[in-house]
């Protein structure tokens, strides 16, 4: 695992939140590479290698996907569903990172085979801590499948 470049896919429509996530993750120097998508449609196009993302050489598979639920164009849950129904993508761990604490959302996410469900904490310290733990767990301790 050492030496292999770790690639995180972040799907988040709120630019401020994306900035927060990226900066806290960078602080811990966990991810080698973070790629940010602002809507579900573009994220899916990347994963499916459609349109501008059709070259596999420039579109490597992420090791983990951080996915917000409320997204413009294609909703987060739909993105999750599409990934988990795709033979080539379903093995990629998907971590839901959202503001919603609604039980309905949690249930639907797990029902659609989300690998983890995280609620964005309100306080800065908690946010930092979550990102740190997330990094260590998913990007450090976790063994990734070969895709």
């Amino acid at each position: 695992m050492i030496g292999e470049p770790i690639f995180v896919m972040l799907v988040e429509d709120n630019l401020d939140h994306a900035e927060l996530v990226m900066r806290t993750l960078e602080d811990h120097r966990i991810a080698n590479k973070i790629r940010h998508f602002t809507d579900g449609q573009t994220a899916l196009d990347y994963l499916m290698r459609r349109g501008e993302f059709s070259d596999p050489a420039t579109t490597p598979r992420p090791h983990v996907i951080l996915l917000d639920l409320r997204l413009p164009r294609v909703d987060g849950l739909e993105v999750l569903q599409t990934i988990k129904e795709d033979e080539n993508l379903k093995a990629i761990p998907v971590v839901i990172l959202t503001t919603s604490e609604a039980e309905k959302d949690v249930a639907r996410a797990y029902y659609n085979h989300a690998n983890s469900y995280l609620v964005k904490p309100l306080g800065y310290e908690e946010f930092r801590k979550l990102m740190e733990d997330l990094g260590f767990y998913w990007l450090g301790w976790n063994t990734h499948p070969q895709i």
Binding site: D16, H17, T99, E101, A102, Y124, F127
Partner: peptide
């Protein structure tokens, strides 16, 4: 309530998050 809690949380997270980053 669901949307309100979601949409009101979002700017709050932003505010508190960046206030934290200000120290950095």
């Amino acid at each position: 309530t669901y949307t309100v809690s979601h949409d009101l949380r979002s700017p709050l997270i932003t505010i508190r998050g960046f206030v934290g980053l200000l120290q950095q």
